[in-house]
């Protein structure tokens, strides 16, 4: 039986917990990864493994970290605009996962190049041409179908990459990848479920889904195109092309959709996102992301 003698003061316990001067580690577990007060790299050996080129490792971590950060920012833009409340929860969840990955990877980049730059130094104080993300992640959200198409392509490719990176000699990168494999599996599952619903839903939704896939597909090739840094310190993304395309083909077939036959987006003098040559979409995205931090140089938030 319940105790019904609860006094008025018992109502206050939730509120009064605020008065504890320093927030302790208790209860942090319920927060999404990386929102608590603890060091996100706690327990992982952060010393550079012998024979690793710090500058290359840093550049590689920036590439992957920037992909995660920029796509997270795009997912965040869906907040309060999603088609259903369940999607509000899910899209925020995906955004949090990617943001968590970005924070670890950027932190690692600052350690690996010896500069000691923090995640925030790298996220807020670099110019657009210093961002190394692929162009796919910076493209504006478009409609729900475009966002789902982009998520499907990105999550499939990134999941495959993280699987390969889980055995990387750098313990931090390996740990991020091992954790990321599970997160990306869910992202892919989520995007697959919506690709099926939209592709095999109403005639209109199928049309939107086809249009979304057609629009994002030209950006896929860049995810399989190796930058020299990737060849030196990471996984050659060209090796992902075949399994990723096979996996995407299977999802599209089940959804009653076909693989778009569209050519890849051209580069600029052979350079693209990994070289810091972006689309027009990145500048405004970063302007918004960085504006407040840059208005208060040296401030702590």
């Amino acid at each position: 039986m319940h105790d019904h003698t609860t006094s008025t003061t018992d109502d206050d316990h939730v509120y009064l917990s605020l008065a504890e001067a320093t927030p302790g580690p208790e209860g942090e577990g319920r927060w999404a990864y990386g929102t608590g007060f603890a060091d996100p790299l706690l327990g992982v050996d952060t010393a550079l493994p012998a024979g690793t080129d710090g500058a290359d490792l840093a550049a590689y971590c920036q590439m992957l970290g920037d992909d995660a950060l920029v796509l997270s920012q795009r997912l965040i833009e869906w907040c309060t605009r999603a088609p259903e409340l369940e999607e509000e929860v899910a899209l925020a969840n995906l955004g949090l996962d990617l943001l968590g990955q970005a924070r670890l990877l950027l932190t690692r980049a600052g350690q690996a190049d010896g500069s000691g730059r923090t995640e925030d130094d790298l996220a807020y104080w670099r110019e657009d041409h210093e961002f190394r993300n692929v162009r796919m992640v910076e493209a504006p959200n478009g409609d729900f179908a475009y966002s789902i198409a982009r998520l499907l392509l990105f999550a499939t490719a990134r999941g495959a990459l993280y699987e390969a990176l889980a055995g990387h000699p750098d313990p931090v990168l390996a740990a991020v990848a091992a954790r990321g494999v599970k997160e990306l599996a869910y992202h892919r599952e989520y995007a697959t479920a919506w690709t099926l619903r939209l592709g095999d839903g109403t005639p209109y939704s199928a049309e939107r889904m086809r249009a979304g896939l057609d629009a994002v597909w030209p950006l896929l090739e860049e995810l399989f195109t190796a930058h020299p840094v990737e060849l030196r310190v990471g996984v050659d993304p060209a090796t992902l092309r075949e399994p990723v395309l096979a996996s995407l083909g299977a999802v599209l077939a089940e959804a009653g959709l076909t693989v778009p036959e569209v050519p890849p987006l051209a580069t600029v003098l052979g350079r693209a996102g990994r070289d810091g040559v972006h689309t027009e979409a990145l500048g405004p995205l970063l302007a918004e992301l960085q504006v407040l931090a840059r208005a208060h140089p040296g401030a702590t938030w």
Partner: peptide
């Protein structure tokens, strides 16, 4: 989208 640190962004999200 404008949170001034990545940690604050994660908390707010």
């Amino acid at each position: 989208t404008r949170a001034p640190s990545l940690r604050r962004k994660a908390i707010l999200l």
